[in-house]
Nucleic acid binder design. Structure first.
Lengths: 146, 146
DNA sequence: TTTGTTTAGTTGCATAAACAACTATATGTC
DNA sequence: GACATATAGTTGTTTATGCAACTAAACAAA
């Protein structure tokens, strides 16, 4: 099965994901402009903790599509910034439960606003129908490779 | 203008580009399996040199959406692997022209095969029409943020 | 020719990713 | 209980990114 719908050059940008790279950079820039001093990778961890506080590191791995060492170090850095704390689980002493500090909780509203703004900037002129299809395609790609 | 078409969680994966991350990882895995010992970032530079040999580093920056330090170091590593060589330009002594070695040229066919295979794996079950729209959306996102 | 500005590339630093090797705890089986 | 195995997390190494500061060459204006 040949993908003749992919001309040279298009293959490249589809594989390297220039659009999502651009969104990530813009989000980082918008954080900086708003004097929110976190990286987009740190944001991606906080994002899931805001939805469900006290996740284990393994759960954060699954949620953020990262491996364990990556999460170990992201949590290290978030701890240094005093945005989260590692709490040893009482049921299972292997587990660290990652909980937000007051400071970490406080960031949520502002950050989510910036993320939504960024997405609106990215999607200007794109119709809801197009977005629906793009989301479907990206989900199928992800499922195909899982 | 609010993007109510993005529910929580979808926003996250759109911004973080989990699909393109997955494609990149699969490409890397497929390179490794085929005993092609390069990173996908190195591949992304070679890809453009295969299309046009002798590009300057600045041209590679534009083609790959990377900044100058990134290209400096990618070219450093490609030189170590003896896949490319820096040639000082005679017209403009500030410029390095990056040229493929015999070994670098030789990789093209095999690598492009692997890249195409990877893309076919990723796009299984996705129709040409859907791909067209997804490409359009990603291009619009990129243009909006450029 | 001198001076200022732009362009091309490099270096230093902090953060992050992928992989392998490791420790410690939990669990399943005999 | 003893042993093997699976799970949770950490550490070391290499590669890569983004930003700021830098050098060197080219160009433009006076």
């Amino acid at each position: 099965m040949s993908n003749n719908q992919f001309k040279k050059g298009e293959l490249y940008s589809f594989i390297t994901g220039k659009a999502s790279t651009a969104i990530g950079r813009r989000l980082q820039k918008n954080f900086k402009q708003a004097e929110v001093e976190i990286t987009i990778e740190q944001w991606s961890v906080l994002y899931h903790l805001w939805k469900e506080d006290g996740m284990s590191q393994q759960q954060l791995c699954d949620a953020t599509f990262r491996d364990k060492p990556s999460i170990t170090r992201l949590v290290d850095n978030l701890e240094k910034l005093k945005l989260v704390k590692r709490n040893a689980s009482k049921e299972d002493r292997r587990k660290n439960l990652i909980v937000l500090t007051a400071e970490g909780k406080q960031l949520e509203e502002h950050c989510m606003e910036i993320a939504n703004t960024t997405l609106n900037e990215a999607l200007q002129g794109v119709t809801n129908g197009q977005i629906e299809i793009a989301k479907e395609v990206l989900q199928m790609v992800y499922d195909n490779l899982k």
